[in-house]
Design a protein around this nucleic acid. Structure first.
Lengths: 331, 331
DNA sequence: CTTGCTTTTGAGAACGTTTTCATGTATACT
DNA sequence: AGTATACATGAAAACGTTCTCAAAAGCAAG
């Protein structure tokens, strides 16, 4: 149907080898040949066929970003979108295209994984399932884990220090004078949730406080679930005076419940979120939250991935970013 | 490096033709052969090579969703994410993978477009530039426009009726007794903004009202810009009592300004958003907004695209969805 | 007009599949 | 047993590139 390199070769009077070179390595071709070849190409509406190219080069110049998290909005949640943005930028800087997908969509009915060999490398974001990782590694496709840490030989990970972040957040609430501090934990990933939970406990006990089990709630990581749970807490006579929420969407739900109960944030109940997603600036009052630098996170992962794609071993197999406390109006 | 069909053929004692069939059309192959071939495949860690496959089949089973809009978050904005979700689902239902990208990243430095022939079809979301469209059409790649309407031969479009939506929204405010109704218009796309603007004017004049030019503000479609603009309006002695905002993020910004000025929504100033993105349920009070059914929008576009991919002409070249008014607390 | 060197070019194999066509091998029916 | 029919298999071409290797062409210097 559309023109191939052969058509251009014929039309321009050169061989396909020369046409190929005119596109891939222009300075190995004489000026005259280049002119004629480009003219023919334009005339025939020719563009090099990426698939055929990938076939022989054994690289597609595509990378994939695969998100595991199932929380709403499923593929595109507020935590990942700025990270994705920065990965996209890194990819484009190197003339790579970016494939985005959700993990549950990677498995075809025939048991194959969709990306097969169309990707030169893959960033797996969130709690990826082991089977997918093994399959990719089996195909010798470079993989980097983002926001997830697994101890697998030669598998680099870029993570935030959730434990440390939770310690800082909880300590901040204690410093503000709070003693009854609750936890709203979305179970997006056992590992991450547990690290944040552990940090929360650690900060409490370091200050001689103990966690009230009625105040530490495990819930679906949605705004609605958080609102509902918070409503329950508000009803208690000895309700907590502050809540540490394991992400901003949850904090937004909690805030909604508090405001609806005609209580004030932070005077009656203080709230801390996590992620510094744009939700934290959208709500009123704005959320105190923990910021994991998404640009740095995306960049680190992309950089490591491209190193591996180019056959180098990454210097660091574990990059651990320290979250920064952003104090706004909710505490 | 990794195993090919030839290795499996050799190991299993069958020809590569049979191995190929064992994967592509299993029931054309005897039970015994299948067993042996699968065993060899597992042993050698073989998986069909998607690129080689695409080469001969002339299809990749990939489609792309390319977003133009540059507003934050650039690729993944709250309006498109549920649409994307539904496109993804339609794609997966057909065993297609979905490529997501932003339009500004489509152009490689050498003047080529990144996707070349790696995509069996493309959905262009938002105000796509003409050059990209022409290039795709030139390569005979099926294209569907989403949330954008261009009168090009054989180019199907799926759009919302922005004019009608704006009429309904404005009428709703008038019905609530408002007379000084302002407009906060984000210029995400001239076409869409203008349609909404026209609908707003139409509703006003149908009720014998006229627009006060001081109250119709054109701004960057960000929460921050909207907050700033709204602050200005609130300062006026004869300020508007209601604002129609051309998307939810803008309405959220406006709401923030109103609440910060210690005014109440909707008693002092009523607000209507557009899109019914999750932002509208996140803010307090929740936003009255116009819902464009994202599932239907994504499905329509995907359905048309797949029809074209399979060589059929779509029945409708223009699908126009009517927005539905969702009344919540902000009016 | 040789000689030697550099630059430009072309022939053809290779990449890993699918598929057409022909052949071989069971199975079913007389 | 012999024939017709269905099914299972394999050889080889094709898909559109890149790249190696060798040859041709250009050019400067003697």
């Amino acid at each position: 149907m559309s023109a191939t390199i052969i058509d251009v070769a014929r039309d321009s009077g050169y061989s396909k080898a020369t046409v190929s070179r005119a596109f891939a390595t222009p300075d190995m071709v004489s000026f005259k040949a280049r002119e004629r070849i480009y003219a023919s190409s334009k005339k025939l509406n020719y563009a090099p066929h990426a698939i055929a190219r990938a076939m022989v080069l054994k690289r597609t110049e595509n990378i994939a970003f695969i998100i595991h998290e199932k929380q709403y909005p499923a593929i595109l949640n507020p935590f990942y979108s700025p990270i994705l943005e920065s990965v996209l930028q890194e990819a484009n800087r190197r003339n790579y295209s970016l494939f985005i997908s959700a993990q549950q969509d990677m498995h075809l009915p025939n048991g194959q994984i969709a990306i097969k060999r169309q990707m030169d490398g893959v960033i797996l974001a969130g709690e990826s399932d082991r089977q997918l990782i093994d399959e990719l590694l089996g195909l010798k496709i470079p993989v980097v884990l983002l926001n997830n840490h697994l101890d697998i030989e030669g598998l680099p990970c870029v993570v935030a220090d959730h434990f440390q972040g939770a310690v800082v957040a909880t300590q901040h609430l204690i410093d503000r004078g709070h003693r009854r501090i609750g936890l709203l934990a979305g179970r997006f990933s056992r590992q991450i949730s547990q690290a944040r939970f552990a940090g929360y406990l650690q900060a409490l006990s370091a200050n001689g406080l103990s966690a009230d089990p009625r105040f530490t709630i495990d819930l679906e990581p949605t705004t609605e679930a958080a609102e509902h749970a918070m409503k329950g807490l508000i009803g208690m006579s000895d309700r907590p005076t502050a809540m540490f929420c394991t992400n901003d969407a949850i904090a937004a739900g909690a805030m909604k419940a508090v405001l609806r109960a005609k209580l004030r944030v932070p005077q009656d109940i203080a709230l801390v979120g996590f992620d510094d997603s744009y939700i934290s600036r959208l709500v009123e009052p704005e959320l105190t939250t923990l910021r994991i630098d998404p640009v740095k996170m995306g960049q680190s992962a992309a950089e490591i991935l491209f190193q591996m794609i180019h056959g180098q071993n990454p210097k660091d197999f574990l990059v651990r970013l320290i979250p920064e406390l952003i104090v706004r109006e909710s505490t």
